[in-house]
């Protein structure tokens, strides 16, 4: 399966692949600090496990970024 992640083309062997799987595969440390957009739609955090990806999906990981006081 071919998925574009943050603009980079990636191939995955799995037939069934959820957003939660992709976050794990991409070794995202703290998924709570990421907002996920699939083909332009922001996915509700509670649906990461049950949203499956299709061939040629475009996924963006958008990181929460605050700042660095002190």
């Amino acid at each position: 399966m071919h998925i574009t992640v943050n603009g980079e083309s990636k191939e995955f062997n799995q037939a069934e692949f959820s957003i939660a799987d992709l976050l794990e595969e991409a070794e995202v440390d703290s998924p709570e600090m990421v907002s996920v957009q699939v083909n332009g739609s922001v996915i509700d955090r509670s649906h990461y496990a049950d949203t499956t990806l299709k061939d040629d999906d475009e996924v963006d990981f958008l990181y929460f970024m605050g700042g660095g006081r002190r």
Partner: peptide, 21 residues
């Protein structure tokens, strides 16, 4: 909010003093 919906759980936010910049 279109993008980030709601604040992340407070305990997931890296403590600023630890993260650095």
């Amino acid at each position: 909010r279109c993008v980030f919906r709601e604040p992340p759980p407070p305990d997931a936010v890296p403590s600023c003093s630890q993260a650095g910049v």
